[in-house]
Amino acid sequence: MQDYQKRLALNLLAYAVQKNTDLAQLCSLSGVELAELKSESSPGLTTQQINALWLNATELSHDSLFGLHFGESLQVAALGVVGELIRHSRTIGEALTHAAAFSHLITDVLTMEVNRSGQTFTIQFIPATASRNGSPLIFRQMMDFFMAFTLHEADGLILQKIQPTTVRIPIEPINLPEYERVLRCSSIQNATDYVMEFDGRYWDEPILAADYDLQAVLLRKVSVLDEAYSNAKSLRERINNFLLANAYLGVPTLDAIASNLNVSSRSLQRKLQEEGVTYQQLTDSIRKSLALHYLQAGQYPIKEVSCILGYNELSAFNRAFRRWTGTTPVSYQKEHLSGFVVSDS
């Protein structure tokens, strides 16, 4: 995991230099030693260092859309073995499926979901709670980067420019033309989620560099990395990521999550206890994060937010929200959405 983070950080530094950024100043402000970053034996970057790199690169380059432009320029080879696996997939659909399956090896910022339905398919970028709750500027740069990179990485695979039919993304009107250019879409909708929809004809488009024998070798290699990554992560992190990625399905019961992880409910409880947390605490934390996100977005009535989070009664949601924040959902939303009409029904 750390090797991929360092690889991405080195590419970020290289791109920042192309934008006439002083490399020494960028590293100094971010608390990063370039020699250590290049060393294979050095420890990985901390979350604080990674965030500082994104923030300082954006400021020093004087590019408010640094993440978007960085994603447009990066090549899939920068992802190492995961990138090679993508490059040697049979079709665009298969490449995107692999990219989504192993995205957690590249970043903790988000997970990817690829869904095919009828004549279209979509790529959804689901932010991790920690990323969404951090600096809005850093969060936005990272989300822009991964959307632009995912789109442009496909160019070299089939030698044609893939164009989304629709893009959903939180966007400032003043930057709309540049998002339309980089994301190649004139139908960009202002929304709270991050989704690109494509014509289904791209799904089965063959990849020119496909090597099926090599792909099998790469898949085994990436699977070993994935297993090591999964074993290294705590059960708490794995459950947290699962709950966040599947939030649209509601919060599952302890028995349901245990079944998903192929363990007994009693074993799951015991392992979580060893990590100093209960399943109820994890679900409570997820509900709180999602509640704050939905209310800040302002696109859902409070009663609907309550239902999304699995509360049968609005009064139960109100009590839980007051326990989390010391205020009511209505008051909280009014504070964050001045100028908007707020409804609790």
Rank of each mutant, 00 (worst) to 15 (best):
M1I: 11
Q2H: 15
D3Y: 09
K6M: 09
R7K: 04
R7I: 00
L12F: 00
L13S: 05
Y15A: 09
D22P: 09
L23V: 03
S28A: 14
L29F: 09
L29H: 05
G31W: 09
L34D: 11
E36A: 10
L37F: 12
E40L: 08
G44W: 05
L45N: 06
Q48D: 15
Q49H: 00
A52W: 08
A57K: 06
E59R: 14
L60S: 06
L60A: 02
D63F: 06
S64A: 07
F66H: 09
F70C: 01
L74R: 01
V76M: 08
G83K: 00
G83Q: 06
G83I: 01
G83A: 02
R90Q: 15
R90C: 11
G93Q: 03
A95F: 13
F102A: 06
I106E: 03
G118F: 04
T129E: 11
R132P: 07
N133K: 07
G134K: 01
G134F: 02
S135E: 04
P136W: 03
I138F: 08
M143T: 06
M143P: 01
H152K: 04
D155H: 08
G156A: 04
K161S: 10
I162K: 02
T166F: 12
P170A: 10
I171P: 11
E180T: 12
L183N: 11
C185M: 09
N190V: 09
Y194T: 14
R201K: 15
D204M: 09
E205A: 12
I207R: 01
A209E: 05
L214R: 06
L218M: 04
R220W: 04
K221H: 08
E227T: 14
E227H: 10
R238M: 14
R238V: 13
N246W: 03
Y248V: 14
Y248K: 14
V251A: 12
L254T: 03
D255R: 13
D255P: 01
S259P: 03
L261V: 11
V263W: 03
S265Y: 00
R270K: 06
E274P: 00
V277K: 05
Q280K: 08
L282F: 07
L282I: 15
D284C: 10
H293L: 15
G298K: 00
Q299C: 05
Y300T: 08
K303P: 02
S306K: 08
S306R: 10
L309H: 02
N312V: 03
E313I: 00
A316K: 07
F317K: 06
R319G: 00
R319D: 13
R323C: 08
W324C: 08
W324F: 12
W324L: 12
W324I: 07
P329R: 07
H336L: 08
G339S: 02
V341A: 08
S343H: 07
